[in-house]
Write a protein that binds this DNA or RNA. Structure first.
Lengths: 240, 240
DNA sequence: AGACGGCGTAACAAAACTGTCACCAAAGCG
DNA sequence: CGCTTTGGTGACAGTTTTGTTACGCCGTCT
């Protein structure tokens, strides 16, 4: 899976250098030197990660970062910031604003690529083919294999993407609408109830034990809110 | 909200330095230098984040990380690892095993704090803005989860919103009318007595103890005024 | 072409939640 | 004290939400 990177930088020679190296490593690169445009591109191009220079035209990097974090569509888009060496105050402000990692200039292109891979591995494990794991469920995104307690689970493509989304954000509750956005795509119109049916199919597949019996259900229904992946057993809950 | 951090590190002077800085920044710190003990503490102390040195006694950091990820109770506990500078192989292995971030030694304490906040913000939005807490009651609005003294409390949608409103304004008394406005919506007409019923249901759920007995009632009835969330026990209120 | 597998929708069943009531208990009040 | 007002409680019937199954469509593979 090719990852798309939005590079926000206004030093032309640096843009060339970085673009060259990223593309060599198999990333798609979208570029701009303008803060306002960066926000637009982040929405439209749906990049998997943003590299953001702190000193850019038209909007400071920190402001771009803040706005990206505030917009729902980009709220958890990975951001790597670039700062001048030793500028610790900026670095800390950046992390506090919501950047996920930083590089100090000058940097080696190799290291930049390594860090980008690390951030993607951490925040978008699926992109790097790493394994996702949660409470006995394992997903190998490259091999498209899912196991529960060691046994292989058979999933259709949609159920696979659905489970992947849950595994990438364990514990968090998603509305049907959010799931449709994330799993089906922002521009596909399907009934919200469709989510229920796929949840059902996913549960059936994931909770099937070896002998045909049911295992604990790791998908929690939150009435009038949505669904979440959740390891808390019902037995630990207090009855109403 | 105070976050609790488990520090797994065996270099005594580093432990002191980090502990000092974390506590100064408002974190609670639990410490150990032992891998086995780290696993126990992670279960028992329920920390919000673990700082894990890669070189520790009794179990390697990587093994601790792996086991934390495997146990349901700690499967998505944020982990920040500490590695020696330039030890890239370890770093990659760590991230692949499930660490959420890393710091290379030596590091600045300020930056450690900033990174911890960044990780918590990303993985536990609950702790930053999504989580509400009062007198043993915890509400994680992103996970849609409520606990009392650590035990999960099961609430219906209306009770959830009602409790959230109280938690957002602890101690304040709300009339039935205000509650209808805030929780039901300004344009819904329902009987004011309906509030009583939902208060009743909320009390029942929140005050239910593990064995079926009643815990202290945290919802105070203010006669002819309304209700409030209040930790003051009745016995301490009136001097007859 | 025919078989197959996956997908979205509809329809019905089951479960959970909601608002109201009637009735009881407790708290003011003269 | 009795009376009045206010809140607590359990039941209930309607409604909403979710679970589950069935079915037809469509693209792929053979």
């Amino acid at each position: 899976m090719r990852a798309k990177i939005l590079l926000v930088e206004d030093d032309a020679s640096l843009v060339e250098l970085v673009t060259y190296n990223l593309e060599k490593e198999g990333f798609d690169v979208v570029r701009t030197g303008d803060g306002e445009e960066a926000l637009t591109l982040a929405e439209e191009e749906k990049p998997d990660l943003v590299i953001l220079d702190w000193m850019i035209a038209n909007l400071s990097g920190i402001e771009v970062c803040r706005r990206l974090r505030r917009a729902p569509a980009t709220a958890n888009l990975p951001i790597v910031m670039l700062t001048a060496r030793g500028d610790e105050a900026d670095r800390i402000r950046g992390l506090e604003t919501g950047a996920d990692d930083y590089m100090t200039k000058p940097f080696s292109p190799r290291e930049l690529v390594a860090r980008i891979r690390a951030v993607l591995r951490r925040l978008r494990p699926a992109l790097q083919g790493g394994a996702l794991e949660f409470a006995g469920i394992t997903m190998d995104t490259t091999a498209h294999r899912v196991t529960r307690d060691g046994r292989t689970v058979q999933l259709g493509p949609t159920e696979f993407r659905l489970l992947r989304h849950f595994l990438e954000h364990p514990g968090r509750v998603f509305s049907r609408e959010q799931l449709l956005d994330a799993v089906w795509g922002r521009d596909v119109y399907v009934e919200q109830r469709t989510v229920d049916v796929h949840i059902r199919r996913l549960r059936k597949a994931v909770n099937a034990g070896p002998g045909g019996e049911e295992l604990a259900d790791l998908i929690r229904t939150v009435r009038s809110a949505g669904y979440s992946l959740d390891a808390t057993p019902v037995s630990a809950q207090v009855a109403a």
